[in-house]
Amino acid sequence: MKNRVESVDILRGLTIVAMIMVNNPGSWGSIYPPLMHAEWHGLTPTDLVFPFFLFIVGISISYAYKNKPNTWLTYKKITIRSLKLIGLGLFLGWFLPYFPFFKSFESLRFPGVLQRIGVVFFIAAILFLNFDWKKLFAIGLLILIGYWLFLGFVPLPDGSIPTFDRASNNWANYIDLNVLGNHMWKDDYDPEGLLSTLPAIVTSIIGILIGKVLASKELKKTQFLLITAAVLLCTGYIWSLWFPLNKALWSSSFVLVTSGWATLILALVYYVTDVKKIKMGTIFKYVGSNAITIFFLSSFIAKTFYLIKIGENQSIHSWLYQTFYTSWISIDKLASLMYALTVITFYLVLGYIMYKRKIFIKV
């Protein structure tokens, strides 16, 4: 982005660090509750991480494509970038760090984090190029209301009444089961499923609208961001009484609440770094400058460490965890957290080195 907003870069990097942290515990059986996703309905700090990133994707779109012509070449670049993200996500799910290097196609999971980022980026960028802020606001609102009405009130093909429960009579689960079949994360749902990607687009649309606020020369930005955050949070929590907060469904209330928290944190960081010019969180900016690259690398290495065995029954991951953490830390959850913090430190250092050497890998 030209005329980069310091707070956006910092928030992007902080979000990537949080994504790496929650994805790399020492043991999945020993995790402090705030670092776990809600089992179904509900919201934990961990549930904020992915929507924060899609929110920032929207802000980035509003800057990167602000002066781009609405031409075939622009659409081509958007399409290529989207396909790269989807391809990287599919590769992460498909590859094996040993012969034959790829798992069977029948067991490949189609959805995923990078795949959703690619799809959301593509649609949000196209919408940005073709509609002004009023129409984007209307599109986002229609999607959220329509999604709620569809999931909650439209009968399933067998005539049964839909629910928001984790079951086949939930529309999102029903569609994923019938379209994706075995290519899902679990037998009964996928957190990055097909239908739930629709409201995820609204998360980026809200980011686009916030990006327009940040680019404005007329608005009192900090105050406007704080008011917007309050409206989003209040509306989202009230709506959750009828449409529960749910990351797996990416419920409409979840969109508003997570976007509200993202806007609130952005407002605070913006005030400190961009208004008061106080240096804070620069290390996160380094990671944010190569966000997708570092996230992909962290996922690739983590999967490799889990799958490559040392001896007969121990993976690289378990050997590192037992040798350097559980061997001297008696509290299991603390040992697991220390492992995750070590992983984060590695990628913070890597981000710093890449930034200082002006290595910026664009996906």
Results as ranks from 00 to 15, higher is better:
203 T>A: 10
217 K>F: 05
180 L>K: 06
186 K>Q: 13
221 K>F: 01
167 A>S: 15
225 L>Y: 00
219 L>A: 14
207 G>K: 05
189 Y>C: 13
202 V>H: 03
186 K>W: 15
199 P>Y: 09
174 Y>G: 08
203 T>I: 11
190 D>L: 03
167 A>Y: 02
197 T>Q: 05
216 S>E: 08
188 D>C: 07
186 K>M: 15
216 S>H: 07
173 N>H: 08
209 L>S: 10
204 S>D: 08
188 D>R: 15
205 I>Y: 04
212 K>R: 15
214 L>N: 04
229 A>Q: 09
230 A>W: 14
170 N>E: 11
210 I>W: 01
184 M>C: 02
170 N>V: 11
191 P>W: 14
205 I>K: 00
181 G>I: 12
230 A>P: 13
221 K>W: 02
180 L>T: 12
226 L>E: 09
196 S>H: 00
216 S>D: 09
201 I>W: 01
211 G>C: 06
186 K>C: 12
213 V>I: 14
184 M>P: 01
186 K>L: 14
198 L>A: 12
200 A>C: 10
218 E>Y: 06
185 W>V: 05
201 I>T: 10
189 Y>D: 07
195 L>C: 04
211 G>R: 01
225 L>T: 13
182 N>D: 13
181 G>L: 08
183 H>Y: 06
228 T>S: 14
189 Y>H: 15
170 N>M: 05
220 K>A: 04
195 L>D: 01
175 I>N: 04
186 K>G: 14
185 W>N: 15
170 N>Y: 04
177 L>I: 11
194 L>S: 10
230 A>Q: 15
183 H>I: 07
208 I>Q: 04
229 A>M: 13
203 T>M: 08
223 Q>L: 05
198 L>F: 11
179 V>T: 05
208 I>L: 04
180 L>G: 00
205 I>W: 02
204 S>Y: 04
169 N>A: 05
212 K>I: 02
208 I>W: 02
178 N>P: 00
199 P>A: 10
191 P>V: 15
214 L>E: 09
178 N>G: 03
197 T>P: 04
200 A>D: 02
187 D>R: 14
214 L>V: 07
180 L>C: 10
202 V>R: 01
179 V>K: 03
217 K>W: 06
227 I>M: 13
179 V>Q: 06
189 Y>E: 12
167 A>T: 10
188 D>V: 14
170 N>W: 03
184 M>S: 05
229 A>P: 02
190 D>Q: 05
204 S>I: 06
214 L>K: 14
182 N>S: 15
201 I>R: 01
206 I>N: 02
194 L>M: 11
225 L>V: 12
205 I>H: 00
186 K>R: 15
196 S>L: 00
180 L>I: 13
170 N>G: 08
175 I>K: 06
184 M>W: 12
218 E>H: 06
208 I>V: 08
215 A>G: 05
204 S>P: 05
185 W>G: 10
194 L>R: 12
193 G>T: 12
220 K>S: 08
179 V>C: 06
219 L>W: 09
230 A>D: 15
196 S>V: 03
212 K>V: 06
177 L>T: 09
193 G>K: 02
225 L>K: 13
196 S>E: 01
210 I>V: 15
211 G>I: 00
176 D>L: 08
191 P>T: 15
212 K>A: 03
